[in-house]
Computed example of a mutant assay.
Amino acid sequence: MAAATTERYRKEQSIPLRSSSAALYNNLSVLRLPGGRLAALSAVHGPSLSLLSAAADGLGFSHRQLQAKEGGMAVSTSLLTQAAWCVLQARVLLVLTSQRGIQMYESDGSIMVYWHALDVAEHSPARAVFARGIAAAGGRFVCVGTSSGLVLVFDIPPKGTNVTVSEVLEQHRDAITDIAAELGQAPVCVESAPDGAGDLVSADDAGTLCVWSTGEEFTLLSKIPAFGCSCSSVKLWNGIVAAGYGNGQIRLYEAATGLLRAEVNAHARWIYALDVAPQTGKLLSGAEDSFVHVWKLSRNPDTGEVAIEHCHAECVTDTQVCGARFCDPEGNSFAVTGYDLSEIFRYGRA
Rank of each mutant, 00 (worst) to 15 (best):
A226M: 08
A266W: 06
N162E: 15
V165F: 00
V241S: 08
D174I: 00
L220V: 08
L221A: 08
A128R: 15
D174G: 11
D178V: 00
I156N: 12
I134S: 05
A203Y: 06
G246T: 07
R140N: 10
G139I: 04
K223Q: 15
V168Y: 07
C143T: 13
H172Y: 08
Q171H: 02
I271K: 09
R251H: 00
L200M: 11
A206W: 05
A268S: 13
T164C: 12
C143P: 08
E182D: 13
V211D: 02
T146V: 02
A262Q: 09
T257Q: 09
A131G: 15
V129N: 08
G138S: 15
L150E: 14
S166Y: 01
A262C: 15
A193R: 15
I176G: 07
S147D: 10
C229E: 04
S213I: 03
E182G: 05
N162Y: 01
V201D: 05
L152F: 09
S233M: 06
G215D: 11
S232C: 11
G145T: 04
S147M: 07
I250W: 08
G215I: 07
D174K: 01
R269K: 12
R269A: 15
L260G: 09
C189K: 03
C231W: 01
I156R: 02
L169S: 05
G145V: 03
V151Y: 01
E263H: 04
E216K: 10
A255W: 10
T208V: 15
R269S: 14
A128N: 10
V241M: 05
I240L: 13
I224K: 11
L152S: 02
A206S: 13
A203R: 07
P187D: 06
N247A: 08
A203N: 06
N162F: 00
R261I: 01
S230A: 12
R140F: 03
L252G: 07
L221V: 08
V234N: 01
A243T: 01
D174L: 10
G244H: 03
V168T: 15
L252P: 08
E182L: 04
A203G: 07
K159W: 05
L259S: 14
G139D: 14
E170R: 14
V144W: 00
L260R: 11
T146A: 11
A137T: 03
A135L: 04
G246A: 11
G258K: 13
Q185I: 00
G196D: 09
T214L: 04
V188Q: 12
V151W: 02
L220N: 01
V234M: 08
P158D: 11
L200G: 08
G133H: 05
G160Y: 01
V168H: 03
